[in-house]
């Protein structure tokens, strides 16, 4: 089956960020396809490489990056939500005249159309959030 996943909550704050990862990983390991993972609302904070959790804790951001590399998983961060919350890639930094970028490997910033497209293309859109 072809899944799409939407992540609406931030890392460490909310179980949804963990559940989304665990679900996505399980789905891929079962041989299903994940068309895209879309990060929205505070979910965009899952994409900052500046995250530094305690060493004995899980690294939620790196986990996504590793999953993306292993399965060529498309991780998309909503641009409007990202701009509000300071998640920036090189292009966005240039466009908005910021002196830094913080997007983690495997993530890309794009528009809400990518979420709608995921809903259209996937057999199931699974939303993680409150």
């Amino acid at each position: 089956m072809k899944f799409a996943v939407q992540v609406n909550e931030g890392p460490y704050q909310h179980q949804a960020a963990d559940s989304a990862y665990q679900f996505t990983k399980a789905v891929l390991e079962k041989g299903h396809e994940v068309f895209r993972v879309f990060f929205y609302h505070d979910g965009v904070n899952n994409a900052t490489k500046l995250t530094t959790p305690p060493q004995d804790d899980r690294n939620i951001v790196n986990r996504w990056s590793e999953l993306s590399e292993k399965y060529s998983l498309d991780l998309v961060v909503c641009v409007a939500a990202a701009q509000r919350r300071g998640i920036v890639d090189e292009g966005e930094a240039k466009r908005n005249k910021k002196d830094a970028e913080n997007i983690a490997p495997g993530f890309r910033i794009s528009g809400l159309g990518q979420l709608i497209e995921a809903g259209v293309q996937a057999d199931r859109l699974v939303v993680f959030g409150d």
Partner: peptide
């Protein structure tokens, strides 16, 4: 912010003729 950002999805999604 859920209500506002929901409305943003609806407006963008409207272009997709669903």
């Amino acid at each position: 912010i859920y209500a506002l950002e929901s409305l943003e999805v609806v407006l963008i999604g409207a272009a997709f003729d669903q």
